[in-house]
């Protein structure tokens, strides 16, 4: 079965991203397909590579990147929500005249249409938020 995942909250502040990760991992282990993980609202903050958690804590951003790499996941960050919150990829930083970008490996920035498409293409859309 094809799952779409929506993550609406940032890392550490809320459990939403942790729950979404555990769900995604369990679904993959059971042989399901993850069509896309879409990050919206403060959820876009799951994609900043500047995150430096204490060493004895989980690294939520890297954990997504690694799971993404391992399973070729489509990790998509909403562009409108990302711009509001200061999350940029290289192209977007250039376009906006910013001197840095901060998106982590394995994530890509795209439009809200990607969320709708995930709803259309997935058998189930599961929402994690506050």
């Amino acid at each position: 079965m094809k799952f779409g995942i929506l993550v609406n909250e940032g890392p550490y502040q809320h459990q939403a991203s942790d729950s979404a990760y555990q769900f995604t991992k369990a679904a993959l282990e059971k042989g399901h397909e993850i069509y896309r993980v879409f990050f919206y609202h403060d959820g876009v903050n799951n994609a900043t590579r500047l995150t430096v958690p204490p060493q004895d804590d989980r690294h939520i951003v890297n954990r997504w990147s690694e799971l993404g790499k391992q399973h070729n996941l489509d990790l998509v960050v909403c562009i409108a929500a990302a711009q509001r919150r200061g999350l940029l990829d290289e192209n977007e930083a250039k376009r906006q005249g910013k001197d840095a970008n901060n998106i982590a490996e394995g994530f890509r920035i795209s439009g809200l249409g990607q969320l709708i498409e995930a709803g259309i293409q997935s058998d189930r859309l599961v929402v994690f938020g506050d």
Binding site: H41, A80, L115
Partner: peptide, 19 residues
């Protein structure tokens, strides 16, 4: 909170998909 505003943005973008 921003949920209402950003939810409305999803609906408006989603409208283009003719669902």
């Amino acid at each position: 909170t921003i949920y209402a505003l950003e939810s409305l943005e999803v609906v408006l973008i989603g409208a283009a998909f003719e669902q």
